[in-house]
Design a protein around this nucleic acid. Structure first.
Lengths: 215, 215
DNA sequence: TATGGCTTTCTACATCTGTAGAAGGCGGGT
DNA sequence: ACCCGCCTTCTACAGATGTAGAAAGCCATA
């Protein structure tokens, strides 16, 4: 999975971020983790920022490859099958790919105070595009917006199970029970955002919030 | 907002975590941020773990107070109003309370590799209970599970806007547009998880994933 | 006033971290 | 064989960080 020096180092870095957080990402720690001589990481990534950027890039690349290798089908005609497909991906990301998922969230948080990372980390752009396309094909109103909402919610399900309360309460990752649970959750989401019966337009919603704004 | 020494210090710590990440949480940095003499934080929280725990506890307390001061109404009979109420809270958490929200996510990620934090950080337990109660009142099937899904999704919407792509694409926090956007998103969620027309039971979902498990 | 316990402040120090450059080694071309 | 450029490894060092203890100040009570 990691053959050349760069890949070995960045993979080790990703693993470190996943299990120790951004704080554990250190030149020397990466050296140790990768089983290479002290100073190696420092030689390849002279500054810490370079190291972080490499991690972010690596994550993006891995996700890209993962997606191309076979994402969910997203068949509009069969929402339940689409939900099951998405659930399968989510389950994989929280079992086999848990480390990568955690690292990704850590990087997202990091990007909050490091704008330059945001360019590289186009995480989820592909998913969003896919979601929008699917909703558009399903004839949903405002597929752009709804697609974004949908992806955000699915991501929420993932985050909850990987770092939130779901990590304790939900069925363990990698099991059929987990996939089943995720499937019903995602199916509900798909139904919610595909139905043209989406009565609340932005306009009517605006009216509804009148009495609720208290900031 | 912060009168006694502990509160001053932990508030400064929360602010630091929000804007610099966990890595910025340092005894000396907290001293500086709080405008107190060097060594103060070190005296109050002898170890770094104690400092982190204090931050987590402070976040939990603030959330608790926030919730008691007036959470959304969650009126079952009027889902749109409930959605608007939730949207208002979300909007506040991503504008005025953005720092706290970011700090919370950072702590959640931190709790991933520090189990002792998990006990303190019962974040969202109240929300989950409320969601379950609401869904139960609405006659939704399996309100426990659906409630958890619902909260996870709502949290996903929040995370997306605070740290994800939504931070760039969605309407700016604190504006009516944002509240409106969130309202339609949440309303769709409520509809999805309250409808008894929730055809896919766990059992049928299990059948649906048969062809999709490839891990 | 003196005393004893606090809270607060200052200082010390071993480690860790970021960063840079020197030293060493290896292989390809002349 | 020799040289040159590259990759790798080692070492140095300034500054940050975690942690502990000493010093100083404050206040109430005897």
């Amino acid at each position: 999975m990691a053959t050349d020096r760069f890949a070995v180092l960045t993979d080790a870095a990703v693993a470190l971020v996943a299990e120790l957080g951004m704080r554990g990402l250190t030149h020397r720690a990466v050296d140790a983790r990768a089983g290479l001589a002290q100073g190696t990481t420092s030689a390849y990534f002279r500054t810490r920022k370079a190291l972080i950027e490499a991690v972010v890039r690596r994550l993006a690349d891995l996700d890209q490859a993962d997606l191309e290798a076979g994402g969910p089908s997203l068949d509009v005609t069969d929402p339940d099958a689409a939900a099951a497909g998405i659930a399968a991906v989510l389950d994989r990301w929280m079992s086999t790919g848990r480390a990568r998922t955690l690292a990704r969230y850590a990087c997202l948080l990091e990007a909050t105070h490091h704008p330059e990372l945001r360019t590289i980390l186009a995480y989820g752009d592909a998913s969003r595009a896919q979601a929008r396309a699917m909703l558009a094909a399903a004839g949903a109103p405002d597929p752009e917006r709804s697609g974004d909402h949908l992806v955000a919610c699915i991501d929420g399900l993932l985050f909850d199970r990987v770092a939130g309360a779901g990590a304790r309460t939900a069925p363990p990752p990698g099991t059929p029970e987990n996939r089943a649970d995720l499937t019903v959750a995602v199916a509900a989401l798909l139904r919610a955002y595909t139905t043209a019966a989406n009565a609340s337009s932005t306009a009517s919603a605006k009216a509804a919030i009148e009495g609720n704004s208290r900031s």
